[in-house]
Design a protein around this nucleic acid. Structure first.
Lengths: 215, 215
DNA sequence: CGGATAGTTGGTCATTCGTTCAAGATGTCT
DNA sequence: AGACATCTTGAACGAATGACCAACTATCCG
């Protein structure tokens, strides 16, 4: 104990951080770096810098850069799940669909860096592993389907219909993301968010048999 | 002349190729390599190999890798223009919109490598130059708008409506592309193409005032 | 205290990258 | 024929990358 106090007074004293905490730091740092410099520019040195850690520390916590990225995938997938679950008001199927789409688009609009990082990650993973990119995308779709199913518990909705709605939501959200990332025009994106919502509404009305819940 | 004939008989004779032809070869090779290895893996050496040229030749034709990519952007933008123009049957606005969306999706479905390369290029360009990624996207949107305007020459359609329709087409096409690239499931993508089309149809009917041209 | 465990670090390795150069080969003029 | 512009090439450069190691230090436990 007295050693600890003595150590505190030394100039070059460096308190230690658990490997678990360090791994978490590296994941967050990696997302930040990927968002800023792209998947190409996300080098081990930059990630270590961002995490305020030594380069060798990264390989002390992770055997390879690829192992670190695996944890990053989990983080991204988890964030999608959170966003979808948070925008689940347990009301109509139509309303749930609309809120889910809006929730995802608002998430994109709020943090374009996260959006860009995610798109890069999926694209990169598809080439590298083929199935990991699919895993992230698939898990997000699964969350959407679960939210839709929860909202249509009383009505009898065919699972195929749920799948189609989930696909349309994902398609609209991704298309919106690509446009928003390209133009980086927040006011234009806000207008397009409304248009995108109305597209979903129109199709749902036709698909589910003209049940316009709210305008 | 006799020199030429004599040269033909030598084993190590290497006929020459004009710099213009070489540049064209490099552009095509770059697209192929980007589609296969991604924007990260598109190294100067791989591109030179694909073009069956020496590495130094690439820098004889282009000052830098970036200069080569500038030509690649032009090629991609041109291809979008061709696809949109080819699917312009000069009929109804609704019909033109549907055919344009279908044309783009079919182009994506036909050559996933071109699709992947394009998405990577736009994403990469956004980070590198900010405006070049926008230029490609914008030029494609412009082609779509022109096609829509041409189809609505007799009707009086507000330019804002044209812009919105073009945005929805681009959004649906890009969202479809991301899904198709991720799952690489051709049969599923074919079904989703139909769904995506019906989404556009539903929205257009509402937006233009219930004018269901075809089911 | 003293040893064991776990976190920390600077320096180094081979590899790959984009780029450059000098020298050679091929055409095309006069 | 010889001069000149235009391709062509092997080899090399410095910079950056992912990975690794041996030495060092904080923390914990008996």
């Amino acid at each position: 104990m007295s050693n600890y106090v003595d150590a505190l007074h030394r100039e070059d004293f460096v308190p230690r951080i658990s490997a678990a905490q360090r791994r978490s730091d590296f994941v967050n740092a990696a997302i930040e770096v990927i968002a800023t410099y792209g998947i190409d520019g996300a080098t081990t040195r930059r990630i270590a810098d961002q995490a305020q850690a030594n380069l060798a520390m990264l390989h002390y916590c992770y055997d390879s850069k690829e192992d670190l990225f695996a944890d990053v995938y989990e983080f991204v997938a988890g964030r999608y799940r959170d966003v979808v679950e948070d925008s689940d008001p347990h009301s109509t199927l139509v309303e749930t669909a609309r809120r889910t789409l809006r929730g995802i688009m608002e998430c994109y609009l709020e943090s374009p860096s996260f959006t860009a990082a995610t798109l890069d990650l999926i694209s990169w993973a598809r080439r590298q592993h083929g199935d990991r990119g699919m895993a992230v995308y698939d898990q997000a779709l699964k969350s959407v389907r679960a939210a839709l199913r929860g909202a249509s518990a009383d009505h009898a909705v065919e699972p195929e219909t749920i799948d189609q709605i989930a696909y349309v939501i994902a398609t609209l959200a991704d298309g919106f993301a690509l446009n928003w990332l390209t133009y980086e025009d927040r006011s234009a994106a806000t207008e397009q968010m409304a248009i995108t919502e109305s597209v979903l509404q129109s199709w749902l009305a036709v698909r589910l048999g003209s049940t316009p819940a709210t305008v």
